[in-house]
Design a binder for these strands. Structure first.
Lengths: 246, 246
DNA sequence: TTATAAAGTGTAATAAAGACACTAAGGTTT
DNA sequence: AAACCTTAGTGTCTTTATTACACTTTATAA
């Protein structure tokens, strides 16, 4: 990239990066610490991962860049879900201080385009570039900076809806995964439980979940068969689902 | 509204206003004509309905305002579906001319937040305020200004997906509608056909479609029973649908 | 060797989907 | 007034999907 001028001060991209660890859903957060001129910490809290957009950069490129900067990963599932533009979205006291410190006018409205990303937590090495980031279980998230609680909530809604209607569950798992792991993804995100046999009957009809000649290793119980998602098979066999809702 | 300053030059709202006329899906378009200083028409084409955002105005308020300005209607179904921000989205020759004529820098990127609206075409009196607008059947839309063909396409995708998963079909009909009209909404938008009896079996399970003690009038055939959508019943009886896809 | 932990499997009952054709009730035409 | 046209409205059977439910298998750990 030759020129790196920021697009303008009014538009940014926020990424809600979801990570699943076989047990719960986490979100990647960044520590925001404002230090006064005399070196004293004014406040410290947590934000979602957001950034400006460069001139000549598309918003998807910007979101990919944020993702790569934080995790070192490319080709992560990423989806634009909503844009946030309320006039008072960055008007809390700490947010105004932060923007001012950052050389931005806290009275100007900033529009943020929200993306969510899906990955398996263990793919990320958190020490990447020494950024102060961490995984936070979604149901332990307290007060976030800016309007990021709202953004997270909307991201969760979008994720749940997408999970119900399109095959994206495995995006939260390693490339090779077991059916129990997949079931857990659905159970945690939709906050429910499924009967194991019925779940597997359903999965058996998803021809794009390909069983491998390979099993789990090193587990203290009967090792499970590993599966793979085939986008090719999915594209070929997907029927436009006309069983609309009741 | 006391002050009407425009938020900034970089952000706008585009509304894809869908109207159904019992027969086909239409979209509201505005004629864009650029007249030179010597009164000669340079070009004339069609755009979707978009506008700037005022300071202190939320984007939903801006979208509502656009809708009201064009149709004279309030309380119309409206949904944010996607934001468009490609660096070259307004870079076609005519678009550059138009922006220049409008006093805007054609080299600046403008981010547009896309909404779609649903209504029954006959609700709109097109002569409202003498604006040069018209209904265009969606499948007769040719080349539109800016990136509006893309925006329309994405709006259609969002509409189809929403229609499959949430009860919004009646938003395209008068308050009181017949089951055949509702069936037609699904058939036209999803580009398919349904068996009448099976469709009605399905509808019978949707308790939020309330049959009225009222029939169609003045039709040259057996008059149909009229139905009403009850949001109240819907909210009460909706089950979170866990029958996820195959 | 025994304990533990999760994997993997079948059947019967109920509900929904899908295929399919005729009668009813208005207005219009002759 | 009769015939006609158009859309409304209805039932059954077959196939497929959902739901409820419990035991055996296979690996590691103790």
């Amino acid at each position: 990239m030759t020129q790196m001028r920021v697009l303008n001060n009014y538009i940014s991209v926020d990424c809600v990066i979801f990570g699943f660890d076989f047990d719960k859903l986490n979100v990647l957060v960044v520590e925001r610490t404002l230090t006064n001129d005399d070196g004293v910490v004014d406040f410290s809290d947590l934000t979602l991962t957001g950034n400006h957009i460069f001139e000549e950069e598309t918003i998807v490129e910007a979101a990919d860049r944020i993702l790569f900067d934080l995790t070192g990963l490319a080709d992560i599932y990423l989806e634009q879900f909503k844009t946030f533009a309320s006039p008072d979205r960055l008007k809390k006291e700490n947010d105004r201080k932060w923007l001012l410190h950052d050389g931005r006018d806290p009275d100007k409205r900033i529009v943020s385009i929200g993306f969510f990303a899906l990955l398996a937590t263990q793919k990320v090495t958190l020490e990447w570039k020494g950024r102060n980031i961490k995984w936070l279980p979604v149901d332990e998230v307290k007060s976030l900076a800016f309007d990021h609680n709202l953004i997270l909530e909307e991201a969760l809604k979008a994720l749940r809806s997408k999970l119900l209607h399109e095959p994206i569950g495995f995006e939260l798992l390693p490339d090779k995964f077991t059916l129990s792991q997949l079931q857990k993804v659905y159970e945690i995100i939709l906050d429910t439980t499924f009967d194991k046999r019925n779940f597997r009957k359903k999965v058996a009809r998803m021809k794009y979940l390909i069983p491998l000649n390979e099993k789990q290793q090193g587990v203290a119980h009967k090792p499970a068969q590993l599966y793979l998602f085939s986008r090719e098979v999915y594209e070929k066999t997907r029927k436009e689902i006309l069983n609309f809702l009741v």
